[in-house]
Amino acid sequence: MSDNRDIIVKNLSYTYPDGTPALKDVCFEITKGENVALVGQNGAGKSTLLLHLNGVIENNNGCITIVGKQLDKKNVPDIRKKVGVVFQDPDDQLFMSTVFDDVAFGPINMGFSEETVKERVKKSLQKVGLSGFEERCPHHLSFGEKKRISVATVLSMTPDILLLDEPTSNLDPGGRRNIIETLKTLDSTKIIASHDIESLLEICDNAILMDKGRVVATGRSEDILTDIELLNSHGLEAPSIVKMLGDDVIPLLRDNFDSSQIKRHEKTIKKAISKKRKKEIFCK
């Protein structure tokens, strides 16, 4: 069996102890280096699914394989080293009193030497563009900074797989842009659960659409995340044309929309893209 598959989930079902069904017969596979968007309305089961993938939720109802290892009780410590999770609320993620201690927490628990830990902290902070923040306290950071430090706390463990739960929620446009650019530079396998379809289009190759605990569609993110009907029927909203104007969407734009539609938004489009790109679209 060829194994460049990082994550295999088979027939995963889960019901919370209080009886809330959260996952129903979930199946999917993710290959190495793939960036996957996990979309679905609130309560669809995205967070629950992510918690399964690093063994925080114990569940025998289904089968999860991470980087060739089946997830079970004795594998959990190993798998947690391979799978980094960035939770939605940075105040949950950053539980230590200084940024340094927080970013060092994972590597220290992994048993690295002092030197290695320091180096890892430095590198991770560099990657999220916050070098020099080592001695700061989390309660004196802006929300956007906290989010990026949260990513760094996981990067310092150099995971093969990165799970992010709503990385762009509650951020102002600048903070959101920062996080998106940071995520784009990371080359690990990623699953990003989010409602921010626009940013997912920018980062992700593939998408998984969930509704009420089930996977209802999988495919290329350009297909899934721009399918207005599909998204609407599951309580989500496709981005407007203008919102889609990331670099890779432009060819798609040309294929999917006729010139009258593009003309209608001409003004905004012109503003949004460079002259060269403009020629490509309008001189068809």
Binding site: R80, F105, V117
Partner: peptide, 22 residues
């Protein structure tokens, strides 16, 4: 509830009962 979420976040980063810092 926050405590519970923090516990999960700590476990995810390899917490095993003692909190070491450099």
């Amino acid at each position: 509830e926050r405590g519970e979420r923090i516990r999960i976040a700590m476990l995810s980063r390899g917490y095993n009962g003692n909190m070491k810092t450099l």
